[in-house]
Simulated scan of single mutants.
Amino acid sequence: MPTDTNPAGDIFGGWLVSQMDLAAGTAAAFRAQGRCVTVAIDSFIFHEPVIVGDEVSIYTKIVQTGRSSMVIHVETWRRARNTKDRRKVTQGKFTFVALDENRKPRPLPPEDGFDTVTA
């Protein structure tokens, strides 16, 4: 939306980061079968801007797990209105930790083979 733009008229980068964090959080919570928190964004690259009106798609993949943590690779793609042209606009690695009811790190449950979630 226009309220999510920067002074140049492109979508504000912080909005994209928050949407990517939400998507990664969904993947993390699904894998952990419960509450998770973002503890780091280890890398982040803006490849090109997103224009108001573009369709935005975000894809996640868990690339590493530890005892209670997960590293999730996130990519954002844009499709300009009325075209089939899709282009990657951002990518990053987000680290999440699974939490228990006391907000303390807890072990991840055993893998069930469903580590990829598209949001």
Rank of each mutant, 00 (worst) to 15 (best):
M1F: 11
M1L: 11
T3L: 09
T3C: 10
D4P: 00
N6S: 04
P7L: 07
A8Y: 09
D10V: 07
L16W: 01
V17I: 15
Q19T: 07
D21F: 11
L22C: 09
L22P: 04
A23S: 15
G25P: 10
T26P: 00
A27F: 08
A32W: 08
R35L: 08
R35I: 04
C36F: 01
S43H: 14
I45K: 14
P49L: 07
P49D: 06
V50K: 01
V52I: 15
G53E: 09
E55Q: 11
V56N: 05
S57Q: 10
K61F: 00
K61Q: 13
V63P: 00
Q64G: 01
Q64R: 12
S68H: 03
V71C: 00
V71R: 05
H73E: 15
E75T: 15
E75N: 13
R79M: 13
R81I: 07
K84T: 15
K84D: 15
R87W: 02
K88V: 12
K88H: 08
T90E: 08
Q91E: 15
G92L: 13
K93A: 04
K93S: 07
T95H: 01
T95W: 03
T95V: 12
F96M: 04
F96S: 01
N102V: 06
R106D: 02
L108F: 07
L108W: 07
P109S: 00
P109D: 00
P110K: 04
G113Q: 06
T116W: 00
T116G: 01
